[in-house]
């Protein structure tokens, strides 16, 4: 099992040097921060849930309404953690499984038929998964290291090791890590802040 060694070693390094300070989970129309449910609705539809959460937390950020659902999901989870603190040195490392396929699908529908051919730039811009990271960066003026990965399933080990490497290189003081998966009505966000 020689191939396992480097990973074990890495796990040890991480445990010594990094800590998770805040965690936000969003799924099933529920927002949980540090194990406490802070918002819940009976609404099953993601768009309505996002709208209600926006009102509840008085996010007061009109750009939110222009975002696609993946960006809304990533944005909401990040807001719960970043709040109004200074994050000028916090990197962003995000990942998911479905990339931007939720919006890709909608965009494709707008160009499928020649009779109803209406490609929209406002939709097209969200056909990239890293746009959600851009939205978070804009809100918090984070001119920091950004990375977006697509993986077949949630892999916290991967996110942590990529974050650890950013912290060790001195390119950031904190890293906001996130698994932000969304396709149609199936979604889950797991976003957390790592510091040294």
């Amino acid at each position: 099992m020689a191939d396992v060694m480097p990973q074990l070693f890495w796990r040890n390094v991480k445990m010594k040097t990094m800590k998770k300070t805040d965690i936000c989970t969003i799924e099933n129309s529920k927002i949980i921060v540090n194990e406490q449910t802070i918002f819940e609705t009976k609404t099953e539809n993601f768009s309505d849930f996002a709208k209600e959460a926006y009102k509840n937390f008085e996010l007061n950020y009109p750009k939110f309404h222009k975002m696609d659902n993946l960006s809304k999901l990533a944005f909401m989870a990040s807001e719960m953690i970043l709040k109004n603190d200074d994050h000028s040195n916090t990197a962003l490392v995000f990942a998911n499984k479905s990339s931007s396929l939720d919006t890709d699908f909608k965009y494709q529908e707008s160009i499928n038929s020649q009779e109803n051919y209406f490609p929209s730039p406002a939709v097209f811009v969200y056909t990239l998964p890293n746009i959600c990271v851009g939205e978070i960066s804009i809100k918090h003026k984070m001119q920091t290291e950004n990375a977006f990965f697509v993986l077949d399933k949630f892999d916290e080990e991967f996110l942590n090791s990529y974050a650890a490497q950013i912290l060790q290189s001195g390119k950031a003081e904190k890293v906001l890590c996130g698994w932000v998966e969304l396709y149609q009505e199936s979604y889950k966000a797991f976003v957390y802040l790592l510091t040294t």
């Binding site: 962003l92 730039p121 811009v125 746009i131 990271v133 851009g134 939205e135 960066s137 804009i138 918090h140 003026k141 984070m142 001119q143 920091t144 290291e145 950004n146 990375a147 390119k171």
Partner: peptide, 10 residues
């Protein structure tokens, strides 16, 4: 390094 502009998405 890969730094975001934190300015505009498009």
């Amino acid at each position: 390094s890969a730094i975001n502009d934190a300015n505009h998405i498009s």
